[in-house]
């Protein structure tokens, strides 16, 4: 039992902490995207930040968090603005313009990753898609305080979670008004464009912080599902964010447990992909939550 506990603290706890921090970061911001009916913008950002991240690395030559953040945020904002411009310029359907731009950005990112210069970046395309929760270990080193041995992803994710919550709390009023009635925001002299750009930049930063650990697929799920799980039950924006974080955390823990511990119980040789399992549970919970609401109404 003691051995299990040690293994849990060393292997499962860091991964679980990373997934939960990513949930707080992306899940909080996802509420704004869902309220603005822009969930697919989240998907586009999740793909489009990749070339910026790699370029940040290539330019500075180091795995500096700041450079990769800057590159990725620029790429995310640029992709969405480009898609908007293409849509207006060509009168394409929004999905098509988004699709053209984000597939191009993502392909560029993969190509850059595979190029010789970026080989040391230690990020392969499969990790970009499915995350690397399984590789986050807690290395315990004698004579060193515990926090110096934490995987660097956890610190980045922690910063992202603080950023997402801080941004949402500080601009709660303005973001809610922007999502509810953009014309009113404009008419009363708020600067909706500026706030929209800020939301995009913050979302890009949080996506970047998250996707190295949890992968594109879970980022897409975290940006859409928790908010959609909460929306049928929420009576206020604040309430929706709270419900989305509580329900999302529970499903994240359940998904991780299902992927990490269930297979060995059934005699499978190794654990399953945790990010994928959490994404599946979150996605299934969306229709389930709507059904629950309908049942509660009926009862």
């Amino acid at each position: 039992m003691n051995g299990f506990l040690q293994e849990f603290v060393a292997i499962d706890l860091p991964a679980l902490a990373a997934a939960l921090l990513a949930l707080i970061a992306c899940g909080t911001l996802g509420n704004w995207l869902v309220l603005r009916k822009e969930s697919m913008t989240g998907d586009a950002i999740a793909h489009a930040v990749l070339p910026g991240l790699v370029a940040g690395f290539l330019v500075t030559g180091t795995r500096s968090v700041a450079a990769m953040f800057a590159g990725a945020s620029i790429a995310g904002v640029a992709a969405i603005m480009l898609a908007g411009w293409v849509r207006k310029r060509m009168r394409l359907e929004p999905g098509a313009s988004l699709g053209v731009v984000f597939t191009a950005f993502f392909a560029l990112g993969v190509a850059l990753l595979e190029s010789q210069g970026a080989r040391q970046i230690d990020l392969d395309p499969e990790c970009v898609l499915f995350g690397s929760l399984e590789t986050l270990f807690l290395v315990s080193v004698r004579d060193k305080p515990w926090y110096t041995t934490l995987p660097h992803e956890l610190w980045t994710l922690f910063a992202a979670a603080v950023l997402a919550i801080g941004f949402s709390v500080l601009f709660m009023k303005e973001l809610a008004l922007l999502a509810f009635d953009r014309n009113h925001a404009r008419q009363t002299g708020a600067a909706p464009r500026m706030l929209e750009s800020l939301l995009l930049a913050v979302t890009s930063a949080c996506v970047v912080a998250s996707f190295e650990a949890v992968g594109t697929i879970l980022v897409v799920a975290l940006l859409a599902c928790p908010a959609l799980i909460a929306s049928p039950h929420a009576r206020s924006v604040r309430g929706q964010i709270a419900i989305s974080l509580v329900a999302g955390s529970a499903l994240t823990v359940a998904g991780y447990a299902l992927a990490a511990f269930a297979p060995t119980m059934f005699g499978a040789p190794s654990a399953l992909n945790a990010a994928g399992m959490i994404a599946v549970l979150l996605a299934i919970a969306v229709p389930a939550s709507h059904m629950l609401r309908a049942m509660l109404r009926g009862a």
Binding site: I217, V220, A224
Partner: peptide
């Protein structure tokens, strides 16, 4: 669309 993507591609990852 986003939920479906999470469901099917997540299942694919697993």
């Amino acid at each position: 669309t986003a939920v479906s993507l999470a469901l099917f591609f997540g299942l694919g990852a697993v």
